[in-house]
Structures are given as C-alpha cells and as structure tokens.
C-alpha cells in the first residue's frame, strides 16, 4: 500500500476509536504512528505530545498534521487530518439527526435534563484541573509550590470576567502577555 492511503486509514482508526477526546486519543495515535508503522520514534512522539499541549487544537488533529507533514509533506497532512475527522462526520451527524428529530419526546427530555447538570459538573472539574495546574505547576499541592504569578493572573482574569462581559479571547491573550511580563520581572 502506498503511503497516502495508509496514512488516511491509520487516522480513520484513531478518529473512530478515541472516545472522550484528547488524552483518550494519545495511546491510539502511539499505536498507529510509533508501533505499527514506525513513522515516528518514541522520542519524536513525546515531542509531538508536548507541542500538541502547547498549541491550540485537538491533539488528534495536531498529531495528524505533524505526522502527515513529516512523512508525506502537505498532502500527507491534509489526508491524515481528513481521515481523523471522517468518522466524527458520520457518527455525530447521525446523532444530531436523532437529537433534533426526537428531542421533544418526554423520555428524551428527561434524559437530557439529567445530562445537563452532569455536563456542568464535568466542565467544572476540567476548569479546576487546569486551575490546579496553574497554581501548583504540576508539583505537589504544598504552600511552597504555589505559583504566585499564575494565581494573580487567574484572580484578575476571573474578577474581570465575572463583573464585565469582556471577550474571553481578549482575557486569555492579556494573561499571556501578563505571564511573559511578570515572568521576566521575576527573573
């Protein structure tokens, strides 16, 4: 099999079986890219994960682009990314159809009503997980590990967002600039 169809098929599998997004996709990508095809070494794969975490976008799309570019240039990136989103296009469209068709049924109303508070809880947990990373930078939760720059930026951003309807993207960008400035001042 030539490289482009092989690349496409590998990422179709990643897209079809990574339920739960992000970190669920990582072992699948590793299995395809490092173990069955040896397109990347383990070292390159670890770099890829670091970069994927540092740059915007879903890890699976980042990985597809990175691997595609490295082994087959720009065409490789397009083919791998398309493969990765193709299963979603089918499965999600089907579920969306079902949702809009039947959402007024009492049974589905009750199920959705119960799902909404669970989704709020999941978003809260994801936010607190990121906040923990900001405050302790991945170290033990102890007073001497507190990252004061991060705490100050979070408090300022949260205060602004609660009181004024600033654009979230403006707030995130200002935090990035603040982090650079305060980090340089702190030496």
């Amino acid at each position: 099999m030539s490289i482009l169809p092989e690349l496409f098929w590998s990422f179709v599998q990643v897209g079809a079986f990574s339920v739960g997004g992000g970190y669920a996709a990582m072992p699948l990508i590793q299995a395809q890219v490092v173990e069955s095809h040896a397109w990347l070494t383990m070292r390159e794969f670890t770099d890829l994960i670091t970069i994927a975490e540092m740059t915007p976008g879903p890890i699976a799309v980042n990985a597809a682009t990175f691997v595609g570019i490295r082994i087959a240039g720009f065409a490789g990136a397009v083919v791998a990314t398309f493969g990765c989103i193709l299963p979603s296009l089918f499965i999600v469209s089907l579920l969306a159809f079902v949702y809009y068709r039947y959402k007024s049924l009492a049974l589905l109303q009750s199920v959705l009503g119960a799902l909404r508070p669970a989704v709020v809880a999941l978003i809260a947990a994801a936010g607190l997980g990121i906040l923990k990373q900001v405050v302790f930078a991945g170290q033990a939760m102890a007073p001497q590990n507190v990252q004061w720059v991060g705490v100050a930026l979070f408090a300022a951003a949260f205060g602004i967002l609660r009181r004024r309807r600033w654009s979230p993207i403006l707030v995130i960008s200002l935090c990035g600039a603040g982090g650079l400035a305060l980090g340089l001042l702190a030496g």
């Binding site: 990121i130 600039a177 650079l180």
Partner: peptide, 18 residues
C-alpha cells in the same frame, strides 16, 4: 511564560462559564 499565563486565563474563562 506566555503559555503559562494563557493557562491562567483559560482556567478563569472556564470557571466563569461554570
């Protein structure tokens, strides 16, 4: 440094929506 700062902003945005 920029990414660490942005992470603080991301946490604030999520918790504000929550």
């Amino acid at each position: 440094l920029v990414l660490q700062g942005m992470q603080a902003g991301v946490a604030a945005v999520i918790l504000d929506v929550v």
